[in-house]
């Protein structure tokens, strides 16, 4: 019996595969952008900490999709919603993404990974730079539950501060700034800010560059802090779904994939000295 093959293969993208149209891609200054992708009325309910993998579809150029935390979901009144990501242009892929304009189609997979476990009455959220993306979404979720999280954000300089200040309305935020002077703002990095702050908390959520997480973990260990700490980690990824085993995080249970077992890990699970 001959095999019949349709001239066009059609298949429906089911749960995790989506595309949408750019509704805005605003430069906030200092290389930070806020991208809003309209996704219509498809089912898309990410948990805070989950991410999407944006395809560049540049087959002879930049090959891998780029992972970004969900910054927010905007629900429109007349049905439909949009997913937002907050990103910083650091290389080739983010440059391409920064050139997207209203109406462009964006393909992405997601929501991917395991998000934050939401617990506690007095959460403290610590973000380094764009690490605030996933924590913003988490903070909104807490607020829906009538819990007011405290947020610490570390930024590099005044420009970055200005880029961020304004997109986080009605969150209880303290900034730290590494370079330059700004009255009323803590000078130093966000871990130093955390060390001197007297905030009362019962759970910590932290997201930022690996070095920042490592320096937090040192303090955590040396001060014998017992509060639960959830860390959102980064790793270089290819597939985003656990198929390539490229994104391994060293943990007490051996290597685990950042994309499916993470990106959120409890602080005690990770073998920090082996994390790069």
């Amino acid at each position: 019996m001959p095999f019949h093959y349709y001239l066009k293969v059609h298949f429906e993208y089911k749960y995790k595969c989506n595309s949408g149209l750019v509704s805005s891609n605003n430069e906030l200054g200092s290389g930070f952008f806020l991208l809003t992708i309209d996704i219509g009325s498809i089912y898309f309910e990410p948990a805070p900490g989950q991410f999407i993998n944006i395809y560049l579809n540049d087959e002879y150029g930049y090959m891998l999709p780029r992972p970004f935390s969900v910054f927010n979901i905007v629900k429109y009144e007349n049905l439909g919603s949009a997913v937002q990501i907050l990103y910083k242009v650091i290389g080739r892929g983010t440059k391409i993404i920064s050139q997207l304009t209203k109406g462009d189609r964006v393909e992405f997979t997601g929501p991917l990974g395991n998000g934050f476990i939401i617990e506690g009455e007095k959460p403290l959220l610590i973000a380094g730079g764009v690490g605030i993306a996933s924590l913003n979404f988490l903070a909104r979720r807490f607020k829906e539950n009538k819990i007011e999280p405290k947020v610490l954000i570390g930024v590099r300089d005044e420009m970055s501060y200005r880029a961020f200040n304004g997109i986080f309305n009605n969150l209880d935020i303290q900034f730290s700034i590494e370079r330059g002077e700004l009255d009323t703002i803590f000078k130093g990095n966000v871990i130093e800010l955390y060390s001197i702050s007297d905030i009362d908390y019962d759970v910590i959520y932290i997201c930022g560059p690996t070095n920042m997480l490592k320096s937090f973990e040192e303090i955590y260990r040396s001060k014998n802090i017992i509060t639960k700490v959830y860390c959102c980690l980064e790793s270089r990824m290819a597939c985003g779904v656990g198929a390539c085993l490229g994104c391994s995080i060293p943990t007490k249970d051996g290597y685990r994939s950042c994309c499916v077992d993470g990106p959120v890990f409890e602080i005690g699970e990770v073998i920090w000295k082996d994390l790069t």
Partner: peptide, 16 residues
Amino acid sequence: GNPPPRIYETPSGLIN
């Protein structure tokens, strides 16, 4: 398997 990092993108290529 090998310790991370395990993935690196190069022009038109991928090193794993």
